[in-house]
Design a binder for these strands. Structure first.
Lengths: 181, 181
DNA sequence: GGGTGCAGTGCAACTAGTTGCATAGCCCTA
DNA sequence: TAGGGCTATGCAACTAGTTGCACTGCACCC
């Protein structure tokens, strides 16, 4: 599983609490690896047991105490091992494709609405990604090391969302045309 | 969950046994919804309980008996309901992106090899999809109804794999360039 | 007659992910 | 001062998915 590794990557960029990690998973990291705070807390606990991360409590004023985690030596080794290890492409689970494939078994009109809704959601996400690209990476050719890698992952998100928007448009055009006939 | 619905879609196209379904999930349906035979057998059992599918045993000669499942009335209703119901875009879990993002924490060279391997895997899949497109859908503009929907899903697969291949190429070019400097 | 391989079904144990809820301190506003 | 919202952590119960194995039957080939 890669949640542990996603957490290692995130903590290696910057140490933080479970809560902070959960927020990162809501935005940047979560663009390509989703996780709830429950999963994160549970996994952090396990990782402490494995010796991959260390944890110390930090008292704060004005807000509750927090536990700050940082990557330990064993965690760094595990991360390096995992990075070099071959992995299989993710198993795909795409709801909307199942629905499109099943369209003939239901109300095609209602499905058109659903596809249009997804189209807009993906277009929105695409806009978010493009805005980040513009703001944080104005000159990609100058990038190197960690910022380059972050940029490349963002590029993956942009490509994926764009492909989805275009696919939805293709589906909508074809199904509307088919509906008219 | 959508495995039940993926099975309904598949059985609605053609009734069959768990074993046959597992094979369909290996190829066509599995391109966008992965499932093992274990999951399928277990889910079929549950669906019989729900009254969504009916099951009858068929004796065969030359091979073991099988249980053939077909969609029942309640299953058809459920499928129609689900098709029209709004759903959220899938939560993304993309291993390779996590690795790329973590590249600075390990051996970037080894990761280049891994990205190249994935690039080839996706290129292979893309070729498979393109071959199916050419063979089964030589004249897309003439399509309507079920074949159209199947074609559109295939188009989604083509777009997704192409986007992945192109992204891998972008990553490889940038990381190799960065490595040279 | 023994091995391989495919068709066919399934259990058991495990790992991973989701959902609902609980708790607790502090801030701000109506 | 009561309620809503944010930070912060966590349990319990559930659903979903994976992995390893076990069994049957037949066909085919060496």
């Amino acid at each position: 599983m890669a949640l542990e590794h996603a957490i290692l990557v995130s903590l290696d960029e910057r140490s933080g609490s479970g809560y902070e990690l959960a927020q990162r998973f809501e935005k940047s990291i979560g663009f390509f690896w989703a996780a709830t705070h429950q999963q994160i807390y549970r996994t952090l606990k396990r990782m402490v047991g494995l010796g991959w991360v260390s944890c110390h409590e930090v008292a704060q004023d004005g807000r509750p105490d927090k536990k700050v985690y940082e990557v330990a030596e064993a965690g760094r080794e595990e991360l390096a091992r995992w990075l070099a290890a071959p992995g299989e492409p993710e198993t795909i689970r795409h709801d909307l494709s199942v629905k499109v494939r099943g369209a003939s078994s239901g109300d095609a009109k209602a499905l058109i609405g659903e596809v249009a809704r997804h189209r807009d959601l993906h277009a929105e996400r695409l806009d978010v990604y493009l805005a980040i690209e513009k703001k944080d990476f104005p000159d990609p050719s100058a990038l190197s090391g960690r910022p380059l890698h972050q940029y490349l992952v963002l590029r993956g998100g942009i490509r994926a969302e764009r492909a989805l928007v275009e696919w939805c448009d293709e589906v909508l055009a074809a199904m509307r045309e088919d509906d008219r006939r």
